[in-house]
Design a binder for these strands. Sequence first.
DNA 1: GTAAATTTCAAACATGCGTTTTATTCCTGG
DNA 2: CCAGGAATAAAACGCATGTTTGAAATTTAC
Lengths: 210, 210
Amino acid sequence: MSKKDTKQKILDAAEVLFAEQGFNDASLRIITSTADVNLASVNYHFGSKKDLIKAVMDRYLSIFMPNVDEALQRLLKEPDINLHQVFECFVAPLMALTRIKRRGPEIFIQLLGRGYIDNQGFLRWFIVNHYGQVLEHFTQAIRKGAPELSPSDVFWRVHFTLGTVVFTMASSDALRDIAQADFNEEIDVEGLVRKLIPYLASGVGARPHY
Amino acid sequence: MSKKDTKQKILDAAEVLFAEQGFNDASLRIITSTADVNLASVNYHFGSKKDLIKAVMDRYLSIFMPNVDEALQRLLKEPDINLHQVFECFVAPLMALTRIKRRGPEIFIQLLGRGYIDNQGFLRWFIVNHYGQVLEHFTQAIRKGAPELSPSDVFWRVHFTLGTVVFTMASSDALRDIAQADFNEEIDVEGLVRKLIPYLASGVGARPHY
DNA sequence: GTAAATTTCAAACATGCGTTTTATTCCTGG
DNA sequence: CCAGGAATAAAACGCATGTTTGAAATTTAC
């Protein structure tokens, strides 16, 4: 039977609207009317809007993060690694999110961007506290792939990288529309990620202090 | 006499609060009470909150953009240029904003980040429409500094770059706090920009298609 | 010096938000 | 079948926002 239960309908509508409009601008009223459920059901099933946001994020993070961590740990066992390999660790786990939903990778990465931006960095806090180990392994891998960088340089470049990815993805819809119009270039999420990797790897590995 | 007129007091308070909290979260009530003026004076002097935002942004953009453009045009006349030089074009104009206010560069660049993020890309539209020529010269300079890139690659990397800068700067306060705590590293805006340049130049100039 | 225009001010308005309440409907287990 | 708990529904609540109003104060101009 095709009738999804209310909780599922809310999550499915919310993640799309959150991704498109941001967590603040996507109101419970637009979410519930899109999901075709009653306004009060969000508070009934999730408690509050903030809890709904956490539920939306965690549906993706709880799958994505362990996969990334596994890939990073496997890579860290190699004797010699480069930065391309480090960033490559994120691609398969990202694309695996199609299992949740066809447009899962896209939605997730836009949510990530929104979350990093809205709510004065609540998501950064959430990730650091729930998945700090992954960040730690990511940093380790970068250190191993670019051993000439100082810890401070690694710190800054990790955050430059996060900024690039998150920001690009948060506005990827608009950018892909322009690319489509200007270059007749159809590009999917994986294609975009693979455009990013050389940029990121080269940026992170740059000789510092110019 | 120290008594500034109302319009000036509003602009000065608004730009700081917009930079710190974002355009949506900084309410007219907190702005006017910080500026020590009446709530209604924003609408009286500027028309609406949106117009206030435009006024705040334009006070900086109208100084910053022509200076950048001049630097880019001068660089474009050189026979041989590299990407470091392209990005260097932004540094002096940015630091010149201390003339408006001591923390001008910092505030401006945070505003830029906020504006790119909030209001579904209203600022991008504003910049493309009012300062499209500068973007065009920026793109030209990158093409000249990295002639092996395809137009499509240039497009994408210009936007990766914008993302990196804007995002880093929008959260620069938090990042600098962490760097201060973890590495005892005091860093000012210019220092941060100079950390960014090698990363950006190397990223933009990376060999594509990995 | 006074009339007119500009600016300030307190108050209210309209709107949209997340949340809570209360009643009703639906489903389920005995 | 029917009692009782879970889920839905409509309405209202409390609050914060940007904006408007109309009177008071201040400045400007002659």
